[in-house]
Design a protein around this nucleic acid. Structure first.
Length: 104
DNA sequence: AACTTGACGTGAC
DNA sequence: AGTCACGCCAAGT
């Protein structure tokens, strides 16, 4: 079981229309991972992993720094499942879920 | 096999 | 309200 797989396991639990922060995902794992590594893992995410439901703590689409194209895709996918964005930011207050509710 | 680089976040200046 | 340092460690080079 690699770190990537553990990240994927958590991300797959995020329900449609909800989001988590990179740090949140890392925090759910034990031992906890830094958000940086979560992002690193997501960079190689397979199709079945809803990577677009992971954003920065403030709702920012941080991927834009690396790949603006990918950020556009993320935004479209999010809006497509009902997540509202304000100026390239997810409305965290409305869509961020409590990490606790994800534990299997 | 060594070295660098991050889809991050927090705390200290 | 900017920077900076730093933990974290898998991947890319």
């Amino acid at each position: 079981m690699t770190t990537r797989d553990r990240v994927f396991r958590v991300v797959k639990l995020i329900p449609r229309g909800k989001v988590l922060g990179y740090g949140d995902v890392g925090q759910l794992l034990s031992p906890a991972l830094s958000g940086l590594l979560v992002g690193r893992a997501l960079a190689t995410a397979p199709p079945e992993v809803p990577w677009w439901r992971v954003v920065g703590r403030t709702g920012e689409l941080l991927v834009a720094k690396r790949d603006p194209q990918l950020a556009v895709e993320q935004r479209l996918r999010l809006e497509n499942e009902g997540v509202t964005l304000e100026e390239d930011r997810v409305d965290m207050n409305a869509h961020r879920i409590d990490p606790f509710t994800l534990e299997d």
